[in-house]
């Protein structure tokens, strides 16, 4: 075994994988960072592999922390000073060494001055909602009711979702299955990894549930369904983006034989869009021809 020979690496690039995985020694990490700061291509590779490593992190099973931990943490904020903000490399810098304070206030007006935290702040009061969708969601809901009568049935179904989930659609059964493509899975992973991912889950008439996940940032959404019934030959599920001007086809899909079926919608989700799914003849339709099995107001 010829280990412990890592001192002889000439090319720091060889360490990029180990670095991204935190598998280097501290000295090597430092050496690598120095090399990366001097090389654009090495820095790009390092950042991409870091991002890749964080996908491995996202795949770990989440564990809900105790309530106590949150309270303790919030209590500690008041006594934990923050670092001064540095000017970013991309910011237009007129002075080469900007005064730290002059750069601490970008577009956002700080509610509390950086590094000077009010000691009497009451952390227990902080109880932010998991997803802040209130006003936007209400706006979106209102929009539903201004739409053509033709989609009122769908609107009602969507409205039911806002009050805790409603039963939509009709029972389906049959046979035939397919597996989601890698491209679809890739899109789904991107949506799941987005910073603003939201979701809404509704029960399906067949007994399963469907979840629509979306990222307004990416303008993408996906439908995921557990226990989605397989359809008879010649029928497919078709997804739609629905807005006030109508429904735009967003791709067809079939149910997975078992487990979770999913479909990443084609096209771009715009603000105020709803996501719907209908059953259509194989190949899909240019416009929906049946009642939706689900409609979720997104964005």
């Amino acid at each position: 075994m010829t280990d412990r020979t890592h001192g002889d690496d000439v090319d720091p690039r060889l360490l990029s994988g180990a670095y991204a995985l935190d598998a280097t020694s501290a000295e090597e990490a430092e050496r690598f960072e120095r090399a990366a700061s001097a090389s654009d291509s090495l820095r790009d590779e390092a950042e991409e592999l870091r991002e890749t490593a964080s996908r491995l992190g996202l795949a770990a099973q989440p564990v809900t922390p105790s309530e106590r931990m949150r309270a303790e943490l919030m209590a500690k904020l008041a006594t934990t000073p923050q670092l001064a903000r540095t000017s970013t490399a991309d910011a237009p810098t007129d002075a080469p060494t900007p005064a730290p304070d002059a750069r601490t206030a970008p577009a956002v007006q700080p509610t509390v001055a950086p590094a000077v935290i009010a000691p009497d702040a009451a952390p227990a009061d902080v109880d932010a909602p998991l997803v802040a969708v209130g006003p936007a969601e209400r706006r979106a809901a209102q929009r539903w009711y201004t739409r053509p009568a033709a989609i009122l049935a769908a609107a009602a179904a969507a409205a039911a979702l806002f009050v805790g989930g409603g039963l939509v659609g009709s029972a389906l059964n049959g046979s035939g299955s397919s597996v989601a493509t890698d491209a679809s899975a890739s899109g789904l992973a991107a949506i799941a990894a987005a910073g603003d991912t939201q979701r809404s889950t509704v029960p399906l008439a067949g007994g399963g549930t469907a979840t629509v996940v979306w990222s307004a940032e990416l303008g993408r959404s996906a439908v995921l369904a557990d226990g989605l019934p397989t359809l008879p030959d010649g029928k497919v599920y078709e997804a739609w983006y629905i807005d006030s001007s109508g429904a735009t086809p967003a791709g067809t899909f079939t149910a997975a034989g078992s487990g979770t079926s999913w479909h990443v919608l084609n096209g771009t989700m715009a603000a105020g869009d709803a996501v719907g799914v209908t059953v259509e003849p194989a190949g899909g339709s240019p416009a929906p021809t049946t009642d939706p099995i689900l409609v979720v107001q997104a964005a």
Binding site: A150, A216, G219, D243, A247, T248, A270, P288
Partner: peptide, 19 residues
């Protein structure tokens, strides 16, 4: 759902605000 297919432009600017 008897709707007409519509074509939409690129992501509109509202999406960032409403998310």
């Amino acid at each position: 759902l008897s709707l007409v297919t519509s074509h939409r432009g690129p992501t509109d600017t509202e999406s960032a605000e409403s998310t």
